[in-house]
């Protein structure tokens, strides 16, 4: 359903020179859509160079699919233009909200998992997919609070959005871990509930563990617990594109590429292992 691109890294300004001049070996890169929408200059030249050598995924942060504010038509227009020009292998944004009173928070705030919100999100995903003319991947966000009004678990909500809106999912394994720690649920239960055929991409990242709270910082190496959960995800979802996100204290490119290589090696190990009994897809239950 979605192309398996291998193991990639985020395209970040710290590595622009390397991508312009050296064409580093990496399966694919993921670019933040908003950093290139309607813009030119060096950033756009880097994206053009990167896409000549490998597939590109476009990852958005400002769609606000869960916001009650109307979809930003100017945003959709520029996004569509970028997608048409870049022809990315994957297009994604987050299951969140972050816009009100005509203002952007530039953050990824969780939505309440209610039937009202579900219908709202499903409607908007359908409209976005109509505009883009392609399937969107929605990513689960890390969260630090929960709503009393929630009627569904996060994983059931996510699965239901994918089923009703006929969209894909970008499963951020680190975010699952972070939220599981913060809210006390079982991360594997979360993964077990996600329909196999909806997952088009995985994310891995570092976080900050404060003991009583885990913060999704996208800084540092992926921790052992998240690598373990990643193994579980690979066993469950198979050959899915996987990206290392490292946005704070961005290291030298070789360090980032080594993290992607580690993800690749783990995936190879898990795929070589005997297949576990698979949980049924949502549609089959």
């Amino acid at each position: 359903m979605f192309p398996a691109l291998g193991h990639g890294v985020g395209l970040r300004t710290q590595h622009y020179a390397a991508f312009l001049e050296q064409s580093p070996r990496v399966d694919f890169v993921e670019a933040i859509s908003e950093n290139f929408m309607g813009l030119g200059g060096r950033p756009r030249a880097v994206l053009e160079q990167a896409r000549r050598d490998r597939p590109v995924a476009l990852h958005g942060v400002s769609l606000g699919i869960g916001s009650v504010e109307p979809l930003d038509q100017a945003y959709l227009k520029q996004w569509k233009a970028l997608v048409d020009e870049v022809q990315p292998a994957l297009v994604s944004d987050h299951l969140c909200w972050g816009r009100a009173h005509g203002h952007y928070s530039h953050d990824l705030w969780p939505v309440p998992y209610t039937e009202e919100c579900l219908a709202h999100v499903v409607d908007r995903v359908a409209r976005v997919q109509d505009v883009l003319g392609r399937r969107l991947l929605l990513e689960n966000v890390s969260s630090y609070l929960e709503f009393r009004a929630s009627e569904l678990t996060e994983w059931d909500f996510l699965a239901e959005v994918a089923r009703r809106a006929d969209c894909g999912l970008l499963l951020d394994v680190n975010n699952v871990y972070v939220s599981a720690r913060n809210h006390g649920f079982d991360a594997q239960t979360y993964l077990d509930a996600i329909p196999l055929d909806r997952v088009g991409q995985l994310h891995l990242a570092g976080h900050q563990d404060r003991g009583h709270l885990v913060i999704d910082t996208h800084e540092g190496h992926v921790c052992d617990a998240v690598w373990s959960l990643y193994r579980y995800a690979v066993r469950r979802f198979g050959d899915v594109s996987c990206l290392i996100e490292w946005d704070e204290g961005v290291p030298a490119l070789p360090v980032l590429l080594a993290e992607a290589q580690k993800a690749r090696a783990i995936a190879a190990e898990e795929r070589a292992a005997p297949p576990p009994a698979r949980a049924p897809t949502l549609e089959a239950r």
Binding site: V68, W97, A100, E146
Partner: peptide, 28 residues
């Protein structure tokens, strides 16, 4: 949903103190 987001926005972006915690889960 609209009222929830308006409330959250005031808490997160504005200066409104978090008095009405009926919106959020307690615990942890």
């Amino acid at each position: 949903l609209q009222a929830q987001q308006a409330q959250l926005w005031d808490w997160l972006v504005g200066d409104a103190p978090v008095r009405d915690t009926a919106v959020l889960v307690k615990g942890g």
